[in-house]
Computed example of a mutant assay.
Amino acid sequence: MSRLGYCTNVHPAEDLPGILQQLDTYAVPVREKLGVDRLGLGLWLAADVAAGLAADPFARKKFRAELDARGLGVITMNAFPYGGFHADVVKLSVYEPRWTDRRRLQYTLDCFVVLDEILSDDVAYGSISTLPLGWREPWTETDDTASLDALAELTRALRGCSKVMKLAVEPEPGCILDTVADTIAWLAPRVDPEYIGLCLDTCHLAVSFADPGETVKSIAESGLEVVKVQASSALHVAEPKAALAELREFAEPRYLHQVRELSADGTVAKADDLPEALETLPGEGPWRVHFHVPLHAQPDKPLASTNDVITEVLRAVPADRTVEVETYTWNVLPERHQQDLVDGIAAELAWAGKEIS
Rank of each mutant, 00 (worst) to 15 (best):
M1K: 06
R3I: 10
L4T: 06
Y6T: 03
Q21H: 13
A27F: 01
E32M: 08
G40H: 05
G40T: 11
G40L: 08
G42R: 03
W44D: 00
L45T: 03
A46Q: 08
V49D: 08
G52Q: 14
D56I: 05
D56N: 15
R60D: 03
R64S: 12
L67C: 02
G73Q: 13
Y82V: 08
F85R: 12
H86N: 13
K91P: 02
Y95E: 10
R98W: 08
T100N: 11
R102M: 10
R102F: 05
R104Q: 09
D110H: 10
D110A: 07
D110P: 04
L115D: 07
D116M: 06
Y125M: 08
S127A: 15
W135S: 14
S147C: 15
D149H: 14
A150G: 07
E153K: 14
T155H: 04
C161M: 15
E170L: 12
P173F: 00
C175K: 07
I176A: 09
V180W: 08
A185M: 08
A188W: 01
D192G: 05
P193K: 07
G197P: 10
L198Y: 08
H204I: 10
L205T: 11
V207M: 09
V207D: 05
A210H: 13
P212F: 04
P212H: 04
E214H: 12
V216Q: 05
V216D: 05
S218K: 11
A220M: 02
E221Y: 00
G223Y: 09
V227N: 08
S232W: 02
S233E: 12
A238Q: 12
A242R: 14
A242W: 00
A243G: 07
R254E: 12
V259N: 03
A271S: 12
A271W: 01
A271V: 06
D272W: 04
D273L: 03
L278V: 08
L281N: 05
L281T: 07
E284N: 13
P286Y: 01
R288P: 01
H290E: 11
H290I: 02
H290T: 04
H296M: 06
A304Q: 11
T306D: 14
T306G: 06
V313D: 06
V317S: 02
T322I: 15
T329I: 01
T329W: 11
H337E: 13
Q339V: 10
V342N: 01
G344Y: 00
I345N: 00
I345V: 13
I345F: 01
E348N: 10
W351Y: 15
G353F: 00
S357K: 10
